[in-house]
Design a protein around this nucleic acid. Structure first.
Length: 340
DNA sequence: AACAGGGTCAACCGCTGTTGC
DNA sequence: GGCAACAGCGGTTGACCCTGT
């Protein structure tokens, strides 16, 4: 492995390519083929480094480049492959003919990543943002178990918060629930009225503007169970997976989970609840993206058994559809995208 | 109309992997 | 095995565009 010598700084043009440069590059490659990129610019009469020429060709000028917005099938493929491969953009690109790694990377960073975050899903792990849920759980139980609390002590319940966003979320959440943090760090004016410790506050349940976490993503369900699934995504629940996850960690299930678990039980086609045999650990992957975006026209989804009868066509519709699938009652004040 | 802020994406940078001598 | 050239990858940058004020 040798160090790649830097392109000569003198006389090498940078920045956007002109039409004339494109023509020169295309003509040269049509005549001589590509490869030997270092020699190419000199031979083609271009004042560019070989690297720049290669990039321009592979990302823009190649005749098999597909232009235009990515389709839902492509987006689904990207999400699924990313959950397996991570940021291996070139590997992902090989599964999407006509799309470049650069294009996929850009699309991920500007569209998909943000959508996942909005939905409460960690775009790195493809799993629910447990930090948010845990924070919410502690906030929830702390707030309605005491009329006055110390902000630092309750934050201590969930360990050190290294992420300042979480601190902001906690503060915002408290203020949105009618509490405020006084100058001496006390949370005051608790307005929650909860009759049951495990009951979500009415304010939250009734709140129409909630962050809709999508726990189906990377939730793992056996093929046998998949076959039992009806095509109604709203009948799906993650309760068993989440229970399993928390119990595996030796923790009790947070209040919020108990609450939404009781609300979102998965039902089979006969409207019977599915048995408690779903877990994160033992079952193959089921991607939410299949529920999210696979249109009926899709012919070759990666996991055809997990596709559904949903056909949406715009960004908003995608969000809206996901939002309507599962509402976990996380208040908008905990929506990370609002605080970044 | 002018400006600010945010989003998008082509292009660049620095690094690693591969190959050939 | 060591070295150099080359190819490729992933992260980052910055110009451009759009929208809101």
């Amino acid at each position: 492995m040798g160090k790649s010598p830097c392109c000569e700084k003198n006389g090498v043009k940078k920045g956007p390519w002109t039409e004339e440069e494109d023509k020169k590059l295309i003509n040269y490659i049509q005549k001589h083929g590509h490869g030997r990129w270092r020699l190419l610019p000199k031979n083609a009469g271009l004042k560019r480094c070989g690297k720049s020429c290669r990039l321009r060709w592979t990302n823009y000028l190649r005749p098999d480049i597909k232009r235009g917005k990515l389709s839902f099938e492509e987006e689904e493929t990207i999400i699924q492959l990313h959950s397996v491969l991570g940021n291996k953009w070139s590997a992902i690109a090989t599964r999407l003919p006509g799309r470049t790694d650069n294009e996929i990377k850009n699309y991920w960073n500007t569209h998909i990543k943000k959508r996942l975050l909005r939905m409460g899903i960690d775009p790195v792990t493809h799993k629910p943002r447990l930090d948010l849920l845990q924070l919410y759980s502690v906030l929830n139980s702390t707030v309605h178990n005491s009329s006055q609390l110390n902000i630092s002590s309750f934050l201590g319940n969930i360990g050190p918060i290294s992420n300042p966003d979480l601190l902001n979320l906690a503060t915002s959440y408290l203020s949105c629930q009618g509490n405020y943090i006084s100058q001496d760090g006390q949370v005051e004016n608790n307005q929650f009225q909860c009759s049951q410790p495990n009951e979500l506050p009415n304010q939250i349940q009734a709140c129409p503007d909630t962050l809709n976490a999508q726990f189906l993503y990377e939730t793992q369900i056996s093929d046998a169970n998949l076959e039992q699934l009806s095509c109604n995504p709203t009948s799906f629940s993650c309760q068993n997976s989440l229970h399993s996850s928390w119990h595996t960690n030796g923790e009790s299930t947070p209040d919020i989970c108990e609450s939404f678990m009781s609300n979102y039980v998965y039902h089979d086609s006969n409207n019977k609840p599915i048995a408690n045999d779903i877990s994160f650990e033992t079952l193959p992957s089921l991607s939410f993206s299949s529920f999210l975006s696979t249109p009926s026209s899709s012919t070759t989804p990666l996991r055809s058994s997990s596709t559904t009868c949903v056909n949406v066509s715009t960004e908003d519709e995608k969000d809206s559809y996901c939002s309507n699938m599962l509402v976990f009652g996380i208040p908008s004040s905990l929506d990370p995208s609002r605080h970044i």
